[in-house]
Design a binder for these strands. Sequence first.
DNA 1: TGCATATTACACACCC
DNA 2: GGGTGTGTAATATGCA
Lengths: 92, 92, 92, 92
Amino acid sequence: MAKKSSKKEATDNSAEVSGKRIKSFIEKIERLESEKAAVAEDIKDVYGEVKATGFEPKIIKEIIKIRKQSKEKRAEEQELLDLYMSAIGMDE
Amino acid sequence: MAKKSSKKEATDNSAEVSGKRIKSFIEKIERLESEKAAVAEDIKDVYGEVKATGFEPKIIKEIIKIRKQSKEKRAEEQELLDLYMSAIGMDE
Amino acid sequence: MAKKSSKKEATDNSAEVSGKRIKSFIEKIERLESEKAAVAEDIKDVYGEVKATGFEPKIIKEIIKIRKQSKEKRAEEQELLDLYMSAIGMDE
Amino acid sequence: MAKKSSKKEATDNSAEVSGKRIKSFIEKIERLESEKAAVAEDIKDVYGEVKATGFEPKIIKEIIKIRKQSKEKRAEEQELLDLYMSAIGMDE
DNA sequence: TGCATATTACACACCC
DNA sequence: GGGTGTGTAATATGCA
């Protein structure tokens, strides 16, 4: 079969294009997910070092949690302030 | 059929008993879940009032969030302290 | 300072009143939210009992889900029925 | 007080060293966690693109899940195969 | 192996 | 009414 009908060809092409885009998205996400997994692995390793050095990972984890909360709390307070400002028309 | 074999009867009974317990658990949970839904509804209603009174629900929500965070942060700090105390053997 | 300007006083009052209403709303919502949390806790406890009794919480959960769907389905069908009835003037 | 007792000094130093190490661990972990969060963000963005292109993120997600499972399955099978091979002395 | 926690998926509510 | 964001439920993982 040397030549497909133009209609058929068009369909094939768009399907093929869609397929390629999907494939590309999937591969991109998979790449990112393996990056993420690698970083998670690194974190685990550091906790391993922590333990090996004689510190309690639990405590380190707790400290990190609190530090994170502090940051989040500050961010929330800023957001509240922004809301107030915008509520009284002072946001621009 | 006036009499079942004792073995069969025993099986029936235990199945029946299990069934009743399961049913009882299910009904209890369903009751609690409708309570929960009712409370959630009440909360929504209050936000409705808030809006009707001319306040911004968003801001109220944000304030509540911050207050909650403060409480949680304090709890976390206490936990960290407990961890420290236990780490140096002063937890009893 | 024996006397405030009436304008100033009015402003203070309305701000104060607003503040009180907001505070009241916030406390009401917080009360409801802790009720909700308490009920959620109760539900968790029941699932704990379920497990302790030797049943699988996952299955109980599934059953409850299905029952809920059935109930919703029946309610929808009833609603549809009511609509039909009213459409042919048989709703009173 | 011109001079600390040597014992006290030693304690100070080790505490200081410990403190530095802990701080270093904490900062390292925090750095890694923000990297992780950044990658997670990137993934979310790609799903945003997927949606914007007209594909269903849910389906893409499903495909990725299946591919992951397949990969894991293949890895397991390979591992099993290696085990067999080694059991019959064909692993070198 | 059971529990606690962290992550992920889902559903509902709000806004445009 | 559709898209977005938030909050909640389910799941997976790591630890004791």
